[in-house]
Simulated scan of single mutants.
Amino acid sequence: MSLYRVTPTNRELFFGEDEIIVSKTDEKGRILYANDVFVRVSGYSENELVGAPHSILRHPDMPRCVFWLLWETIANGEEIFAYVKNMAKTGDFYWVFAHVTPSYDENGRISGYHSNRRAPTREAVNKADALYGQLLAVENQHEDRKQGMHAGIAMMLDLLKQNNVTYGEFVFSL
């Protein structure tokens, strides 16, 4: 399967409030299952999605530190909620409110991940977008991508500490 080089547009896609985007991945984040809503909104065919890394949808406006937090959380066997700006095959973008949980094999080991994504409120999108813009600006101040990500993580953790909230409490306050 080839991954496409997609150029972002400034066009936003929407999906229904009553629709849920569902995907399942293996432990490395390769897509094993994509429901019809996921296929339609992403613009990729099911064949293009299955086997591809979930990062095929990564929009360049998303700070790396948010994905670091997501992966750290689910790899530790915990669920996470997050607002994510995804990019469709066309370059158009769409926002989701994601709930990601680990899946386990018969021996109790993490074997993959399951994600349900709903349409977020416009108010939450505006707040998340503003925060992500700040985090991305901090990340982009560093030539070294890893240093930039760590600077974004530090900023995010400092924000949580200042507000005396967990990440989960923060997300649900948006």
Rank of each mutant, 00 (worst) to 15 (best):
N163W: 09
R122Q: 11
Y132G: 05
L49V: 06
M1F: 03
G77A: 02
E169M: 05
L174E: 09
M1Y: 02
A119L: 10
W68T: 12
K127C: 01
G108K: 13
S111H: 10
I20K: 11
S173G: 15
V165Y: 04
N107W: 08
F14C: 10
F67P: 06
S45L: 12
G112E: 14
V171W: 08
K161Q: 14
L49W: 02
L136H: 09
P63D: 07
V100G: 07
A52N: 11
R30T: 01
A124D: 01
N35G: 05
Y167A: 11
T9M: 06
V66A: 09
E106F: 11
I153H: 03
W68I: 10
L57G: 00
F97M: 08
I74G: 08
M1A: 05
V50K: 12
S45K: 08
S2G: 03
F97A: 05
M149E: 13
H54Y: 07
S115W: 03
N140R: 14
E78I: 14
R58H: 09
I31V: 01
Y132K: 10
H150P: 10
Y113P: 06
I153C: 04
H59R: 00
W68Y: 15
G112N: 14
N47F: 13
A124S: 03
P53M: 00
T9N: 08
D158F: 10
A151I: 09
D61P: 01
D158W: 13
T25C: 04
E12V: 07
I153D: 05
Q141W: 08
F172G: 05
H142R: 13
V96K: 00
A52K: 09
E72M: 13
N10F: 11
E12I: 10
A98P: 01
G112W: 12
M156D: 07
H114E: 12
G16P: 01
K161R: 15
